[in-house]
Design a protein around this nucleic acid. Structure first.
Lengths: 242, 242
DNA sequence: ACACAGAATTGACCTATATCATCTGATATT
DNA sequence: AATATCAGATGATATAGGTCAATTCTGTGT
């Protein structure tokens, strides 16, 4: 008689190539099954679909299996403020634990596959899985570090340094997922980049042009290739935790 | 025979006037005792004393009973970046859960009394106190919201709006501690304010002068009085969560 | 009481980036 | 296929805030 753990479903946390990031490494296999059953694997989502809206009741956090997501909020004066970009293997949606409602909107930037991790289930499970709780607090702490890196970037760095930092950050994060660190497609528009980095579209565009003329990058629309990673990195002071 | 719970020490969480903020409201009284024993109440600290250094092993978070603290880190190029100001009733030190080391420095801005909450004890306690864990995640989530508010402030708002936002934030936070919302002493220097808001000292100083000439505030060195709270608030778009 | 170092203010000038305007090439719509 | 819409690039100009320099004020230690 086979043990239940071995009856692996076609799609689950065991077989997911990014479980090492999304889940605590030390989670016991039997525990992983419990969590696995709690997670809802959503259908692939099209580009520009909302994952949740600001104000929505907070019920879950989300892991990205493929695609990309941006989070943003609408400021008092009605303008959009992009607060983050999320790539495969990353988890978003921590905002809203504080008061039970999401403070950000989240939309897909391209066709994406997400895993929904219901928070109530997580809280129940974490009572018996200290590792799980610890892991989630680590992830939240990491989000705090990322935000603080962005704060530094915004208050201290020039337009060129900001753009370089974002490119290097994307590069590193893709690399950690065993994707190319030097040739990739930007999932977001120039406007989103500018919004996120506190710059206008025009400035972002000019910086891209300048980088290209200096042979730091080659880019055609959203396809980008980093030619001189070393020199680009030297401009990106605050990409470490971005 | 008296039960141990009734042998209340002169200074403890039960009697602390800010326990409602610092601790989960729903914590059972007997649980509170357990936590109470875990918390170290430090001696009053003088101005400009370090609570922890960046790189220090992460062991505790800290609640402020009186005084004020700033957190900051040193960027790659050796300059300081102020990452937060903390007032009585607030908890700081979440950074460093991620990798076990603090990423920020923390120093007192004036004579202060702090409570140290050892994290290992917290983790042990939270296994049997789900509310405690939930409360701490809320606090972390709140820190994320604060950081994102600052990001918005830095990338969208003018010098005047930034300074107004900080003043209104301080005012609100003091008010929540039943202190005056309109007349208080700024615990930090103009340089710290500028650093935090991504402005130079000179700009901060000029904005203060301008606010004063418009009768929005009256200020003499660090003593400040908000004269026209309504009009100042209208400038402070992003103070809500700062 | 005095001297000194640091904090704050103010002015003159400069530069990075915003703003406004135009143009081109993609992408979507009929 | 033709047209409208949107994303991106580039140039000309304006301006908020930075930089540099000089001055005054303040608190600390002797």
């Amino acid at each position: 008689m086979r043990s239940p753990q071995l009856m692996i479903k076609p799609s689950n946390c065991h077989s997911c190539r990014m479980s090492a990031l999304c889940l605590p490494l030390a989670l016991r296999t039997s525990d992983l099954d419990l969590l696995d059953n709690a997670i809802k694997r959503g259908k692939p989502m099209q580009k520009n679909q909302s994952v949740f809206y600001a104000g929505d009741r907070f019920t879950s956090v989300y892991a990205i299996r493929s695609g990309a997501v941006k989070s943003y909020c609408i400021t008092d004066d009605g303008t959009e403020q992009v607060t983050g970009f999320y790539l495969p293997g990353e988890i978003f949606g921590w905002d809203g634990i504080a008061n039970g409602n999401h403070s950000n909107h989240a939309v897909t930037l391209e066709t994406s596959a997400l895993c929904e991790i219901p928070f109530a289930q997580f809280e129940r499970l974490s009572a018996t899985m200290p590792m799980l709780q610890q892991h989630f607090m680590r992830l939240m702490s990491k989000e705090i570090s990322t935000d603080q890196a962005l704060i530094t970037l915004l208050s201290k760095n020039s337009a060129e340094e900001r753009v370089a930092s974002l490119l290097i950050s994307l590069s590193k994060r893709l690399k950690s997922q065993h994707l190319s660190a030097t040739k990739f497609r930007l999932p977001m528009s120039r406007a989103d980049i500018g919004n996120y980095l506190g710059l206008t579209v025009e400035t972002v565009s000019r910086v891209f042009s300048r980088f290209q003329s200096f042979d730091l990058i080659y880019c055609e629309r959203k396809e980008i290739e980093i030619i001189n990673l070393k020199r680009l990195s030297s401009l990106a002071h605050n990409a470490e935790h971005l």
